[in-house]
Design a protein around this nucleic acid. Structure first.
Length: 477
RNA sequence: GCUCGUGUAGUGUAGUGGUCCAUCAUGAAGCCCUCUCGAGGCUUCGACCCGGGUUCAAAUCCCGGCACGAGCACCA
């Protein structure tokens, strides 16, 4: 299907942006913004600005390391670096200058009302007393805000729109407020910080952004910013929206919530496999192309949607299957031995990939006549050992019946003892972690490789190449 | 309360007046193939929120409901 055309887009002249708060790494929710913006940029040979909206050091404080995390998450997902990277915190002088201009132009004022008091006035469409101050007076209060004389909460700068606007959200909206908390990038240099609506508006203009694609929860932002643009005589970028996304298995994505849970040791870190962060998904073996295909397939609509992880997994399987070698993984292994009447060949060779997408074979040594089978599979007495032979089960002994397939009996995976290595499969399930012990086929197990455990599903090898116990992390079925 | 947005199969999505007894993907069920419960192939299931109106003709336009969601933060 693909993405629809962007309105008023000229090839080579499109500038888009993706603006996360660096208060954690990117999540699955951010992936939509990254994908949509980068795909459009590719389509129109445009540019993407990665902008760190780090203007709040109090409610959602930035994490110093997160800037780097986000850059690498972005690069992983799109396969390239953003064209331009800016941090709001290093552009503060520009924002403050525009704020001052706002006051000089009498298009803004320093409001000393409490938030509650202003809310009441606004709901009644009444002007607050601060609104009638002269630019000169505002400028002198502005100075007091910036030099630290005014304390946090003492004053905000508002954009003078109109108190009669039908939409209460747009009435004299707040543009800057005082924060004395230390900022991880610039310390205590600034006392006054812009709010999103102001900072974002100015920066989009400064960067020459032509198209803004954002969540529809920001529709009122567009309206507020359009008012500001009109005052400055600028043209507002084309704006498109997406609706809210939920993934069944994860619920919503709250970076602050995850941060708290990690601090409380509920999760081991940002790459805990239970988390919907990009780094957790990448660690588990999700393919970035599959992830992109998924978001492109959803497209850009304003509908609130709730999709299943299964859909992403289907995209992922189709991307990774052809490069995943097969391995046997016997859960809850039972040791059985061929009886004396069974004459066995001494070695077996099995394809690395059933369709031959991967050249070569796995060689199994069969000199030891003991094998592992899954407890569940030996409930039946006549089964076929996959790629090997039909057998009959007699208590803890097995008897070779035929190498050729002689009937329609069930085909099961198995492992000769000589090829079996202890293994632990970690399966994230909701907030839980399930540990599944088993025997893994000891054949070229390379750290970081994703294998398909036959009849089980995909998993990634997490332990070093010669570990005595192989650690596997579950990807999906 | 005010403002805004969205409503097509279980889940997503295509479709902007006839070519739609509605597309594709995913899902479920079944079959074929394959020495995996994987991959591939095939079949089936399943939807235009409701009510009016305009029109020869409406998923598509208009009006009115209803449902869901969002904004009204000195968060982003």
């Amino acid at each position: 299907m693909g993405l629809k055309e962007l309105p008023n887009a000229e090839k080579g002249k499109v500038v888009l942006r993706f603006a996360p708060n660096p208060n954690g790494p990117l999540t699955l929710g951010h992936a939509r913004g990254v994908t949509i913006n980068s795909e459009y940029s590719k389509l129109y040979e445009g540019k993407v600005v990665l902008r760190f909206d780090d203007t709040d050091s109090k409610v959602k404080p930035p994490i110093k390391e997160a800037y780097g995390w986000i850059e690498s998450d972005y690069e992983w997902l799109t396969g390239k670096k953003p064209d331009i990277i800016v941090k709001a915190s290093e552009r503060m002088d520009i924002y403050l200058e525009y704020a001052e201009k706002l006051l000089r132009d009498d298009f803004g004022y320093v409001c000393k009302c409490s938030a509650e008091k202003f809310k009441k006035l606004r709901d009644d469409s009444k002007e607050c007393p601060c609104r009638s101050k002269s630019p000169l007076e505002n400028l002198s209060h502005w100075k007091l805000m910036n030099d630290g004389t005014f304390d946090e909460g003492d004053a905000v700068v508002r954009v003078k729109t109109s108190m009669d606007l039908p939409n209460p959200a747009l009435r004299d909206w707040p543009a800057l407020r005082i924060q004395h908390s230390e900022h991880p990038m610039v310390g205590n240099k600034y006392k006054v910080w812009p709010l999103l609506d102001f900072q974002s508006a100015i920066e989009d203009y400064e960067q020459g952004v032509t198209h803004i694609i954002r969540g529809k929860d920001l529709m009122d932002s567009t309206r507020k910013q359009t008012l500001l643009y009109a005052h400055f005589g600028w043209d507002y970028p084309e704006t498109l929206y997406w609706g809210r996304v939920k993934i069944h298995e994860f619920g919503s994505f709250s970076t602050s919530g995850m941060r708290k849970d990690i601090e409380n040791k509920k999760f081991t870190g940002w790459d805990d496999p239970r988390l919907p962060t990009l780094r957790a998904l990448r660690r588990r073996g999700f393919d970035s192309d599959a992830m992109r295909d998924f978001w492109i397939d959803l497209g850009l609509t304003q509908k609130d949607i709730s999709v299943s992880l299964q859909t992403i997994e289907a995209f992922n399987s189709s991307k990774i299957d052809e490069r995943c070698e097969r391995r046997a993984f016997v859960r809850n292994p039972e040791l059985l031995k061929f009886d004396n009447s069974s004459e066995l060949i001494t070695s077996l060779s099995i394809k690395r990939h059933p369709m031959g997408q991967i050249e070569g074979e796995r060689i199994w040594d069969l000199n030891d006549k003991r094998i592992y089978l899954e407890k569940n599979d030996i409930k039946e007495t006549k089964i076929r050992l996959k790629d090997f032979a039909d057998i009959r089960i007699l208590d803890d002994m097995v008897q070779l019946e035929s190498y050729e397939r002689s009937d329609k009996r069930k085909i099961v995976h198995w492992l000769p003892v000589s090829m079996a290595k202890n293994s632990i499969l970690t399966i994230p399930k909701g907030d839980e972690i399930i540990i599944q012990k088993g025997m893994i086929e000891d054949f070229e197990l390379k750290k970081g490789d994703i294998v398909q455990l036959e009849r089980v599903g995909y998993a990634i090898i997490e332990s070093e190449n010669n570990s005595s116990i192989i650690k596997l992390l579950w990807l999906h079925g």
